[in-house]
Design a protein around this nucleic acid. Structure first.
Length: 889
RNA sequence: GGGCGAAUAGCUCAGCUGGUCAGAGCGCCUGCCUUACACGCAGGAUGUCGGGGGUUCAAGUCCCUCUUCGCCCACCA
């Protein structure tokens, strides 16, 4: 039971075997019919091709902390893991591999390519889930899902068809965000807007009759080849005469009209806008209002197509831009060029500049779904951490636009829509089950070639992962979930949409708490990324310092809503907090276990009168730590919860209690047994408090403690509750001990007393607490301060000594003979007195102010009076000491 | 342009309902290998709480304003 611990803390030796033990004992699994109130977290499913990075480390640590905490609190805790098929990302990875062999997906063809992706996923996919085991993630692996699993695919299809039936899914031709590299449409969220230093070109379009012309401003000159009109504001006095006129579109032989539309801002640019209905959302709307033709001038990969004059055909869009500008310049039609800062959309997967493009796509009507999601938040069904994220959520929902869900990819959920091409039939079938043939004409059907946005399966996870559309026991037991932990980046991609889907299909929000944590960044506050090479590999950290050190460092460095800053160039000091603390814990355990035996009495069986002041004090500190850590975990302030356990263990338990209790622990006296009982029980409780953050080391130490917990594992044992012990004057007495010991240690350091040399101390004007502390705990003081003896007396000793006056007026004097420099001591006492006199004067003035004494609460005034008394007393003592030493002045 | 937020010790940040709130960790300085721990022990230094106004008996804490910085959204081409 008190089997020896390795002298050196070696996390690699304990972590992996312990994880296996937990898993083999079924500690992570929970049945639907298990007792207790459920606590459910859905892991944000990592991409199936992902490898663990620092962000995953932080994200999953937080979830694991919450799961472990709530399990210990008696909840039926379920953490559901899974992976996302990640349409574009995964397809890109496999395409890159093919490219190494000089192949493209088109060489293979759709079926073979998809087969290839499945093979790739089968061979290398999901390794991140295995890496999470090293982190200690207590997920229920029996419920691991993949978003392309048959069950989840059924859910996707059910949702698509239902929304279609409800008129919330439609197909239409609109301007969408097109990635010319991935060759697919993207949603608005997938087009990342980046402020870019660009230019704006002012181009002159001459009137068809040759009389002057009109100047338009554009950031994308190449699109002028698709212009169908120039628009001005109907009220713009400058252009009244022009409205209705015909312009000769330069570089082409086309004629376009000048039209009036209120969408035009008179103040911007020249007040005249070229209208390209097929390549700009605003222009698209203007074009619709005026019945303009939509001329798509580009190919899928953003080269100019056959609609433009021959010399431009086949040119890349940016090459074409240069050429268009050059030709305008040659014609004398380039008025001027200005620098211009504007937001340009980039593909969130490959970074390619988005091409706004007219295209036939499927959309989800979002307004009807957003409405309940807003209401739910406003009615308090959702709690954001930090709370301000709720405003961002609201802001987004209020101006939501329809969601483009079709993707021109091959890897993903195929859209469940079939078309009948038979003449005169041309039916569209949207169905849950694959139809054999056209129900209208029995003709052959052709399935829509597109797949769905990856997020169209992700937004269903809170219920699809539990078996929906089947009404499973899991669904009943574990929906809705409790918390959702993720980075703010996917608040719109995923979190808000899950809320909508949950409300729409289950009638309830999928989780109550939305915990949005910060990002792991380097010392320059840059996001860690592969391309910048500034990443920290969590697995490397785990290998070097252990998962517990990694986890503690991440949690302690993470206040709610702030980023975690780590230095990739100095892993050693970055993870020092966790590493140091884990080592400290190990050594506390080693020391304590070395002094325990199997028959340590239960604390409940120790008579109250057997407890010393230090025992009662440390129990009080433990109770405070239990209360605080519990509250902080509940409030999701994990760093504060961890700090509560940390400070209790290190500053109170190790630094003071164990140090003070050493003689008792070394011996075999009855009070030694009491100390062992106290130490064992409080250490047990503290390990419980810390277990959510540092599961491995706490479990390892806990298993070696003598106890009779029936669960047999810390991971499954109950959360600690405060001990029922009366403090009496214990905390006051120990505080006095700490003050006296601190004063003596300070004086020793001040005068360079050799560490081994014993001195004596004289206490004058002892306060009641000091008096009691010295008479009851004098031996402890003597040992902790390395004293030969400590005495109390009424008068200041004649011998020269260092003096410190404590806050309660007690004077601690250490006679040091020759070691004391009298001048220095006089100056020190004098400075101290002066400083205090200043404070006294300030406080006297404050108390003399009737405004203060009449308006401030009585307790505050009383507190200030007491403080004044103490300070006055201190000043008097200091003066007295100076006099006794014969100080000048 | 709209929304949200931040400025506290060299660094990263706490300070939650205005009155022991000027703190923690890391780093730094001094002394110690005191048989649990040098990833340690003991002691120590460092802040006009971004600037300026205001409310209050009392303000890192509330309000206004300026400066600087960050995040999200956005069809001024």
């Amino acid at each position: 039971m008190t089997e020896d611990l390795a002298p050196q803390y070696d996390p690699t030796a304990i972590e992996a075997p312990l994880y296996r033990k937990w898993r083999d004992e079924g500690r992570f699994h929970v049945e639907a019919d298990a007792p207790g109130e459920p606590y459910v977290i859905q892991m944000p499913p990592p991409n199936v091709t992902a490898v663990l990075h620092a962000g995953h480390g932080l994200n999953n640590t937080i979830q694991d902390v919450l799961i472990r905490f709530h399990r210990m609190r008696g909840r039926k805790a379920l953490w559901v893991p899974g992976t996302d098929h990640a349409g574009i990302a995964t397809q890109n990875v496999v395409e890159k591999r093919l490219a190494q062999d000089g192949q493209s997906r088109f060489d293979l063809g759709r079926e073979a390519f998809v087969e290839e992706v499945w093979t790739f996923v089968g061979e290398t996919g999901g390794q991140i889930l295995r890496q999470l085991e090293a982190l200690g993630a207590a997920c229920d692996w029996d419920r691991t899902y993949f978003t392309l699993d048959p069950g989840l695919s059924r859910a996707v299809r059910e949702v698509f068809v239902t929304l279609h039936e409800q008129g919330l899914i439609y197909r239409g031709k609109y301007i969408i965000n097109w990635c010319p590299r991935c060759l697919t449409a993207l949603s608005n969220e997938e087009a990342e807007k980046e402020e870019t230093e660009g230019r704006i070109w002012h181009l002159r379009y001459p009137l068809a009759d040759g009389s002057g012309g009109i100047v338009v401003a554009t950031t994308r000159p190449e699109t002028m080849l698709g212009d169908m009109a120039v628009a001005v504001h109907p009220d713009d006095p400058r252009y009244q005469a022009m409205i209705g006129a015909e312009l000769a579109l330069p570089l082409t032989d086309r004629r376009i009209p000048v039209i009036a539309d209120t969408a035009v801002e008179q103040d911007f640019g020249s007040g005249a806008v070229k209208v390209t209905p097929a390549h700009d959302p605003t222009d698209f709307e203007i074009g619709r209002r005026h019945g303009l033709e939509q001329l798509d001038i580009m190919t899928d990969d953003a080269h100019l197509n056959d609609t433009v004059p021959e010399r431009f055909r086949g040119l890349d869009r940016f090459v074409a831009r240069k050429q268009v500008v050059a030709e305008f310049e040659a014609l004398g039609l380039l008025e001027r060029v200005e620098p211009h800062r504007h937001a340009v959309g980039h593909c969130y997967r490959c970074g390619t500049i988005i091409e706004p493009r007219l295209s036939d796509q499927w959309f989800v009507r979002m307004a009807p779904l957003a409405e309940p999601a807003l209401t739910a938040y406003r009615e308090g069904a959702l709690e954001f951490i930090p709370a301000r994220q709720g405003e961002i959520y609201t802001n987004w929902l209020e101006q939501i636009r329809d969601w483009c869900i079709s993707r021109q990819l091959w890897w993903g959920h195929r859209i469940p829509v079939w078309y009948c091409d038979a003449d005169g039939c041309e039916r569209t079938i949207v169905a849950r089950e694959d139809p054999e043939s056209c129900p209208g004409c029995s003709g052959t059907l052709r399935q829509d070639p597109d797949v769905l946005d990856t997020w169209f399966s992700s937004w269903l996870v809170p219920f699809s992962s539990l078996g929906w559309p089947e009404q499973t026991a899991d669904l009943k037991a574990f929906y809705p979930g409790s918390a959702l932990v993720t980075a703010p980046e996917i608040l719109f991609f995923w979190v808000a949409r899950m809320v909508m889907a949950g409300l729409h299909f289950q009638g309830e929000v999928p989780f109550q708490t939305i915990y949005l944590h910060g990002t792991v960044r380097d010392t320059q506050h840059r996001k860690m990324s592969k391309s910048l090479g500034n990443g920290i590999d969590p697995l490397e950290v785990i290998e070097r310092y252990g998962a517990d050190a990694l986890r503690y460092t991440l949690v302690s460095g993470m206040a709610v809503g702030t980023d975690v800053i780590l230095d990739p160039a100095d892993i050693d000091s970055s993870f020092a907090p966790g590493r140091n603390f884990a080592n400290k814990l190990w050594n506390i355990g080693r020391f304590l276990l070395g002094h325990l035996d199997a028959d340590v009495p239960r604390l409940a069986n120790v008579a109250p009168e057997e407890l010393t002041a230090f025992d009662r004090w440390i129990i009080g500190r433990a109770n405070a730590a239990i209360r605080q850590a519990t509250t902080e975990y509940e409030r999701h302030r994990l760093n504060d919860a961890a700090a509560a356990a940390y400070h209790f263990l290190w500053s109170d338990f190790a630094d003071w209690y164990l140090e003070a209790a050493k003689p008792r622990l070394y011996g075999t006296t009855p009070d030694g047994r009491v100390a062992r009982a106290v130490a064992a029980h409080l250490f047990d409780a503290a390990l419980r408090l810390l277990h959510p953050v540092m599961p491995f080391i706490t479990e390892t130490l806990w298993l070696r403690l003598p106890h009779s917990d029936p669960t047999g594992a810390l991971i499954a044992s109950p959360w600690p509750i405060p001990f029922d012990v009366v403090d009496g004057t214990a905390s006051r007495d120990v505080a006095a001990v700490q003050a006296i010991v601190g004063a003596i240690r300070g004086l020793r350091a001040e005068y360079g007393v050799a560490p081994g040399r014993e001195v004596s101390a004289t206490i004058v004007d002892a306060s009641p607490a000091a008096r009691q502390a010295i008479s009851e705990l004098g031996e402890t003081i003597r040992r902790l301060a390395k004293l030969e003896r400590i005495t109390m007396q009424d008068t200041i000793p004649g011998e020269a000594g260092g003096t410190i006056v404590l806050e309660d007026g007690t004077s601690v004097i250490v006679p040091l003979g020759d070691l004391v420099d009298l001048d220095r001591e006089c100056a020190r006492l004098g400075d101290e007195a002066k400083k205090l006199e200043g404070l006294v004067r300030g406080l006297e003035a404050k108390l003399a102010n009737p405004q203060f004494t009449s308006r401030a609460p009585a307790a505050v005034v009383e507190g200030e009076r007491e403080k004044l008394e103490v300070w006055r007393h201190q000043v008097a003592s200091l003066r007295q000491k100076r006099q006794a030493l014969g100080c000048p002045g």
